[in-house]
Amino acid sequence: MLFIKCPYCGDRSQNEFAYGGDATVKRPEINKEVSDKDWDNFVYLRKSPRGKHLEFWHHVSGCRQWFKIQRDTSTHEIFKTFKVTEEI
């Protein structure tokens, strides 16, 4: 069970959180033109790297905040957790 530092609540066990997928995927802006290709890339394509992965988690059984984690997908080492608005 991973031990995750919620940027709002501190260290908590994984069972308080829900995974939210690749955080490098940016939704195209609303009400703006976007090509079919860019849209499909957003909806379907994922890099799924082995190694460092920036991803969303949601503290569902806690503060209910979404936040970002940089984690190694082969060792599960967590390098850093960030608020959504923070960059690496």
């Binding site: 939704r27 609303i30 969303f56 905040q65 979404w66």
Partner: peptide, 9 residues
Amino acid sequence: EYYLQVVWP
């Protein structure tokens, strides 16, 4: 919550 916190803060 995802859209409010992540996409359209």
